[in-house]
Amino acid sequence: MIELTTKYLGLTLKNPLVVSASPLSEDIGNIRRMEDSGAAAIVLPSLFEEQIHVESNTLDRFLWQGTESFAESLTYIPDMTGYNLGPDGYLEHLRRAKQAVKVPIIGSLNGSSMGGWVGYAKKIEEAGADALELNIYFIPTDAETSGSQVEQVYVDLVSQVKASLHIPVAVKIGAYFSSLPNTARRLDQAGAAALVLFNRFYQPDFDMENLEVVPNLILSTPHEFCCASTGWRFSTEKSRQTWRSPAECTRLRTC
């Protein structure tokens, strides 16, 4: 019998299979099935601070539109007492997920402001997450911002979040760093307990007929396992660094 138990983020997992963040884990039923099917831990889909803000601002904008202009119709839409905007729905889902299964539940967070990263991270911890995966998706667009400044943003972010939490923090990053090993080490030093080497930037398409940028959602393919494993999975336990070779990754089919 092969010994499958392993440690990840300081958590003891019954095997090295962790379900990554995806819409599948939006449903409690699915989460139970994941556990039944043998998953050792489950990462919930990301809480997007930006999405919360957009939803909030959009609702506000259109509840406001046209109001206070004409005496007979001072408002057009009933204003409800609550809209479940903000992280409450996510946090409630996390709580219920924790109650539904025994395997660790890892929260996932995509913030857009420093205050947001820290604030939401704390809330996710309070809701009972066993660990937190930070999904850092920062696309620099300013020519004045250098590569090292971008890396510093990542590092500062991880330190700030880690400083405010007790639970372990994983960081999901893409491959687009000048020196991935260096960045990896710095994130490690900043407090990351794990690095998840998989991140895809949404890439819009260009409609050449209409000269328009159009949204284009291409979902991930198995092929991308290989690409990801050219980077390595790092597992750090405070002082010890274990480096697995690509060959070992391929054998275990884990990333």
Binding site: I52, E55, S56, T81, Y83, L85
Partner: peptide
């Protein structure tokens, strides 16, 4: 505006 979300209050 609190019920419409933190972003609205903040701005």
């Amino acid at each position: 505006y609190g019920r419409r979300g933190e972003a609205v209050v903040k701005k």
